[in-house]
């Protein structure tokens, strides 16, 4: 569906995107994860044809953005990071206008407007001006505007920034449903949990480059000893720490008073062995917590920084 081939973009002497390459299959939900300033939005802008790349190419459904930008734009629906709507006209009028701009006839645009209002769950507020909407409602219409022409590829650039949890959930559910109905989705965010929830495959972007990509499991498997088991005991015991270090697949053990952290690549086996050793040593287990590896830890390991740095 989408092929991004060695895309580069420089502003003056500053190279913002330094050769991004990835592809997205039809019907797939693909995540672009990276901190602010990583080059995600610039990459998205080049995919949409909003800014010209310095080099490289993008093809959507086999059509090159460099050769036929209008055709590519017809296939794409873009949800921008900011609310890009006309605040003094109603939601219905906004949707109708964007439908017409994507080439729908008057009749088609009217019909589709009602459908989209239903998708975003705002039929009952459709007559109200956008300026009277809450932040979350604006975000929903912002997404709706990109759905008017039933795009083959929906690109969402941080669509949940600054909204309440309820609206965020609604948006995530809407995107999930659209994807399940067959729409290809590219979702960019620096919220790891959103990308994890929505996306089958993920590319981690940092400093203008894709530094890793794959499914969540594939990315997490890159981390050795990424699962941590935290056991709280009643009395600290240096001898116990040494013993726990001998368990199979345990990479390291750290102690902070009564709190023991065990890093392992096989949490299931290590947890049983560790609890058994604690009990055998005559200590009491007060609490146990297992932390699976996530994209945050992958990013941390790959870059030495957190996603929100």
């Amino acid at each position: 569906m989408l092929k991004v081939d060695n895309l580069k973009k420089s502003f003056g002497n500053r190279e913002v995107v330094r050769g991004v390459t990835f592809s997205v299959n039809k019907g797939e939900s693909f995540g672009l994860l990276g901190p602010n300033g990583a080059g995600k939005s610039t990459t998205i802008s080049m995919i949409c044809g909003l800014i010209e790349s310095s080099s490289g190419d993008v093809t959507v459904g086999g059509v090159s953005i460099n050769k036929n930008p209008m055709e590519v734009k017809r296939k794409i629906g873009v949800v921008p990071q900011d609310i890009a709507l006309y605040p003094t006209i109603s939601a219905r009028e906004n949707l109708y206008f964007w439908g017409r701009m994507y080439g729908l006839s008057r009749v088609e645009a009217k019909k589709r407007t009602e459908e989209v209002l239903e998708i975003v769950g705002l039929q009952d507020r459709a007559k109200e001006k956008i300026e009277n909407y809450s932040g979350g409602m604006k975000r929903r219409i912002n997404i709706g505007a990109a759905l008017m022409h039933k795009p083959e590829l929906l690109i969402m650039d941080e669509p949940t920034v600054g909204i309440d949890p309820q609206s965020r959930n609604h948006i995530l559910e809407t995107v999930k449903k659209l994807n399940q109905e067959g729409m290809t989705v590219i979702y960019t965010s620096h919220y790891m949990e959103e990308v994890e929830y929505l996306c089958e495959r993920i590319a981690i972007v940092d400093q203008g480059l894709v530094i890793a990509s794959g499914t969540k499991a594939e990315l997490c498997n890159r981390l050795v000893g990424a699962t941590s088991i935290q056991i709280k005991v009643n009395v600290s015991s240096p001898e116990l720490i040494d013993t726990l270090g001998t368990i199979q697949n345990v990479q390291s053990v750290k102690a902070d008073g009564e709190l023991i952290t065990i890093y392992t690549s096989d949490a299931r086996q290590a947890l049983g062995d560790a609890v058994a050793l604690v009990v055998q040593s005559g200590l009491q287990v007060l609490s146990v917590d297992v932390q699976e590896p996530n994209l945050e830890s992958v990013f941390l390991q790959l870059t030495g920084r957190t996603l929100r740095d």
Binding site: C48, M70, R74, A84, A145
Partner: peptide, 8 residues
């Protein structure tokens, strides 16, 4: 910017 994203 959004207008520029449409085929216009």
């Amino acid at each position: 910017a959004r207008l520029m994203n449409t085929p216009t």
